[in-house]
Design a binder for these strands. Structure first.
Lengths: 222, 222
DNA sequence: CCTACCGATCGGTAGG
DNA sequence: CCTACCGATCGGTAGG
């Protein structure tokens, strides 16, 4: 909503009441995110969510006003966690190639969890590829933001001379993205063991093809 | 079913009646496949399918006995078409590397159609990764069959000396699979133009990394 | 945050 | 292949 943020008052009862409603909403979004990673954003139902929360359907509904708004809240929460776990930590690595490596390594770390829990950027792409609307736009926006961050790291690495000057950043990003998608496909659907290692090796292969020096103490190919 | 195939009789009425039922069923499966490529195998509903067919729900239902059986019929039909369009034509290319190239080229050709219509091996993986059962098994089996065919081509190319002797066929397959997945993701969801060309360049990159000579008259990087 | 309800749609069944 | 129906579930609303 566009309501002005309400400043904290001296009346504890009112501020506590406000907090209570927000806490409940946050708890619902948290539970919804848990459901969505397992069954997809499109599979989210208010009834199932209410049961998980031990609330009535309309009690859940009232916090969002529509299923669409619930879905968008879930996507925003996912985006925030993605940033917290991958994007921000990677910023502490030096610009360019080290940061790109950090992003991928953190992504792999997260993926080893997501193999159990699922990734809504991947399931959402399949669910909404033919369904224009605000949910699709929210998903698309989050993914694009993340892709842009990775591309920036690639471009900087190129400018710093850590990657070949003739490299096509979009092409490299495409190939890296493919590794992540193959990882989820093989690990989560086909249940092929060793997929994380294969994705990591694939990343090393791409880097070496694009002219990066081998990482110090790379664990692959041992 | 396990019923013995009924031999053609001299009574035209009966054989025509049999054909009629089978023709109707085939027409339903065809329409169902069209729906499934757009909205997914899980999104298939007997009611929607009946409307498309101009039939009653129970009229459609009677041909399958359950939604699950309908879904499996759709997957089998998809598998058959996949073989007809990619696997069998590729067999006419020489064993090894040329056949591998033919498989990928035919796959790309098919993908340019699927960007509009969707691929149930991709959407199905997301829909059924957490849903054990016969539908998932059918999907998994089809994908594994196709992966095995590609792996065979890679292994032969290696044995023939057309690819490096130290190559890991599963690793190479993983990377190729990633390109296909990235293609569908970017083209179908993000609507990024030029994704087919990127996938093709990615394939050339993988081949050259694994020691293949450049293809004769390769159109990439021109 | 609740109860009580709505119209629509789902997979599936009975009986023909 | 049909009509007519079932119990369950969906998103959403009314009213409190």
């Amino acid at each position: 909503m566009s309501a002005a943020p309400s400043p904290p008052t001296d009346k504890p009862a009112r501020s506590r009441a406000l907090q209570k409603g927000q806490q409940t909403k946050a708890a619902i979004v948290d539970a919804a995110l848990g459901l969505a990673t397992q069954i997809g954003v499109e599979g989210l139902s208010i009834g199932a969510l209410a049961e998980v929360m031990g609330m009535s359907k309309s009690g859940v509904f009232a916090h969002f006003g529509s299923r669409e708004e619930l879905q968008i809240s879930v996507i925003r929460e996912y985006h925030a966690r993605f940033e917290d776990e991958i994007f921000f930590p990677a910023l502490s690595a030096p610009r360019g190639l080290p940061r790109l490596r950090a992003m991928f390594a953190l992504w792999m770390q997260r993926s080893s969890i997501e193999i159990d829990a699922g990734c809504i950027y991947i399931s959402g792409a399949v669910e909404f590829d033919d369904c224009p609307g605000p949910v699709r736009d929210a998903l698309c926006g989050s993914v694009r933001t993340w892709h842009a961050a990775m591309k920036r790291a690639i471009v900087i690495a190129k400018e710093e001379g850590q990657l070949g000057a003739d490299l096509d950043a979009d092409q490299m990003l495409f190939e890296i993205h493919g590794l992540i998608l193959a990882l989820h496909y093989e690990a989560r659907f086909l249940k092929t063991p060793g997929s994380i290692e294969r994705a990591t090796r694939g990343f090393d292969n791409i880097l070496s093809r694009y002219g990066a020096a081998p990482a110090t103490a790379s664990p692959s190919q041992e």
